[in-house]
Computed example of a mutant assay.
Amino acid sequence: MYSTSLLSLLAVPLTALAFPTTSLSTRQELESLHDKYVAAGKQYFGTIADEALLADEQNVGIIQQVFGQLTAENSMKWESIQPTLGGFNFAQPDVLVDFATANNMLIRGHTLIWHSQLPQYVSDITDAAELTEVIETHISEIMGRYVGKIFQWDVVNEIFNEDGSFRDSVFFNVLGEDFVRIAFEAAKAADPDAKLYINDFNLDSADNAKVQAMVTNVNKWVAEGVPIDGIGSQAHIAAGQGSAIPDAIKALAAADVAEVAITELDIADAPAEDYQQSVDACTQEPKCVGVTVWGVRDNDSWRPGTNPLLFDATGQPKEAYNTLVSNL
């Protein structure tokens, strides 16, 4: 079921949107980072959304002007999309997919297998055969619904500890590392044309043990025939860390995968230099296909009080946005 406000937004062209008087009512035109990045040879420059953000006119206006790809923020996570066994809830992800499709935007699916935001019924499974079936059904149902519409999926998310060991989770505890193969094979069967990613955070320095573990394990899995197409680096970083991102992206790109991406970029206090360094890291790496920033305006960020995004709480572009526009 779609909200009346969202349906009206989908039917109204950008030029007809009435933006709040504190922001884009000045009729300030924003330049598209997506168009500039595509012109630079990349596939996309994107952001996140879900139903609530797409019901906000200001947010929609910025998205339509600036970005060319949408990632589901929470609506495709397990507790949201299958809160009870066999009880799939597609209402919210349908809103995102329909909006992106109507606006000719690419879509990233996030995320299929993750230890967090997980219903208790999954965490309670102790039998390997049962968990395998639950994983395969979960992935088949979700990806099958959106086959041909979502071009990249984060199949497994945040599976390594900082020292490179496997994170404690129901998936690893019951199935060992074989859950990775199970998930990727199910994803490949559900949508053979989608690009399938392993995604993680703190992959922001080439020297990090997690980076080394990611590359080593991905190379092993690929050699064993696991259909991993890409590695996603979340890049939730602090000011001053942007300078390390280029070497980190190169280290990840050295793995036996077809592509890499920066998937969840946000930077505390949004320093323009760090944003530029992070985006440059992808620009300069041939395997890097795009950048996704984890939100539009600071007031919508999952990192409250850090002001990590390209637009402030009133929807005004910040220095980091202007710098990217100029340098791209």
Rank of each mutant, 00 (worst) to 15 (best):
D193H: 12
I228Y: 03
H138V: 05
L9W: 07
I125K: 03
E57S: 14
D94I: 02
K250E: 10
V174M: 05
L54G: 06
S80W: 02
E185I: 02
V293W: 08
V218L: 03
T26D: 13
A251L: 00
K210Y: 13
V12S: 13
A244E: 13
I228G: 14
E57R: 08
N104S: 11
L131C: 07
S169A: 06
Y275V: 07
Q241K: 09
A313W: 06
A183K: 03
D168C: 08
L85S: 14
Q43L: 15
N161F: 03
P13Y: 02
T263E: 08
M76F: 07
D163T: 04
Y37I: 07
T26H: 09
W114C: 06
M214R: 02
C282D: 14
P93F: 02
F90T: 10
A209N: 15
L6C: 00
E141P: 01
Q64P: 05
D269I: 05
T47Q: 10
D127M: 04
I62H: 05
L85Q: 15
E185W: 01
S25A: 13
S123K: 10
L131F: 04
A18W: 00
A213D: 04
F311R: 11
Y44V: 01
V291Y: 05
G148N: 08
D98L: 02
A213G: 01
T22I: 10
G46Y: 00
P20L: 01
L175N: 10
G46C: 03
G176H: 09
L96M: 13
F184D: 04
A235G: 02
Q316S: 11
E29G: 08
A52S: 14
L203A: 11
D50K: 00
I237S: 12
A102W: 00
V257L: 04
V95L: 12
A190G: 12
Q276K: 01
N199D: 08
E57L: 07
D200C: 05
K318V: 05
A91Q: 13
T263F: 11
F99V: 09
A18M: 11
D207L: 06
V134G: 09
T137D: 15
P119Y: 03
F179M: 06
F67M: 03
Q58Y: 01
A270L: 06
N74G: 04
S80F: 05
Y2C: 05
A183V: 00
T323D: 12
D298A: 02
A129K: 12
L70I: 10
F184C: 09
A255M: 06
K250S: 12
H110V: 06
P119H: 07
F45W: 05
L324E: 11
Q82N: 14
G315V: 00
Q69V: 11
T26F: 04
L324T: 07
T263S: 15
N199F: 01
A313R: 09
D266Y: 02
E79M: 10
P271V: 12
S80K: 07
I81K: 11
Q58E: 15
A270P: 08
D127Q: 15
L96E: 06
S205H: 14
M1G: 15
F172C: 03
A186H: 00
V155G: 01
A248E: 10
V170A: 15
L85A: 15
Q284A: 15
A255E: 06
W114E: 14
A49I: 14
T4H: 07
L24S: 06
I113L: 12
Q117R: 07
F184P: 08
V134D: 05
A313Q: 15
F172S: 15
V95D: 14
T263I: 10
Y37A: 15
P83S: 11
Q284G: 09
A40D: 04
K149L: 13
